[in-house]
Amino acid sequence: MIKHLLSAADLDAAAATLVLDTAAEMASLAGREVKKLPALRGRTVVNLFYEDSTRTRISFEAAAKRLSADVINFSAKGSSVSKGESLKDTALTLQAMGADAVVIRHPASGAPHRLANWVEGSVVNAGDGTHEHPTQALLDAYTMRSRLKRLAGLNVAIVGDVLHSRVARSNVQLLHTLGAKVTLVAPPTLLPVGVGAWPAATSYDLDAVVPDSDVVMMLRVQRERMNQAYFPSEREYARRYGFDVPRMRRLPEHAIVMHPGPMNRGMEIAPEVADSPRSTIVEQVANGVSVRMAVLYLLLGGKA
């Protein structure tokens, strides 16, 4: 197994499948009397969060605690970090505290890569800038596999602000590794220059992509992008790229609709879609804990 999980590209098909299979075993815990496993007893997992993300932090915290690890939450707010301590100095502090793993969320792309140079333990990327969010991609893949019983050959449309999306980058990598076919759908302004090199097709036309999609994954669109001239108005964006009821009706019978959350209801996704049986949004949250347990176990469970 790998030492760090910095990018979805760190996982080959065998390793990614092992994570998903392990997550399935971890998920069976949820129904047990005692929802705790001793696998990481005596190990310390630090959640180092430079961005507010209660959802992701709680998910990692629950995962680590169910594996009996000691969890230290290190939030950038109200700590020495906000007084300007450098990431490197923070890393050395965590090192001195005996962190076996650091789960890092950071607004700067590549911060986990830097951190991995400065700590001896494992580093798990919990979202870095506009780069990657590999555990989100793993839980998305897990959710698709649970619902549709396979990943290879699935047509997955990822729709919205691809340019700024770490979820999209990780999903493109992982889904490609696992044999799914990804189509990125966005206005041209929200696709990065150089996207042609990604293992994914691109389209500007959501309606053309919907009928052939097994999975539609909607990305969060930040309203402030409008002021940066990425699109003219919320209304126009919602009309061209929002997932509404008529588009949902054109999906194949079995297809599912995903969203990494938090949602802008009425912007990229209509409330009726978010609350429909096709929506996996609540499952994604539950699966997040299992997948993160699997990742922490596989990174930390064996010989260091």
Binding site: H131, R169, V193, G196, A197
Partner: peptide
């Protein structure tokens, strides 16, 4: 902007300098 705009910047999630 953080690095040359192109394939590498797109992959690394760094703002491109075209």
């Amino acid at each position: 902007a953080q690095m040359n705009e192109g394939e590498v910047a797109a992959r690394l999630g760094l703002v491109g300098w075209p």
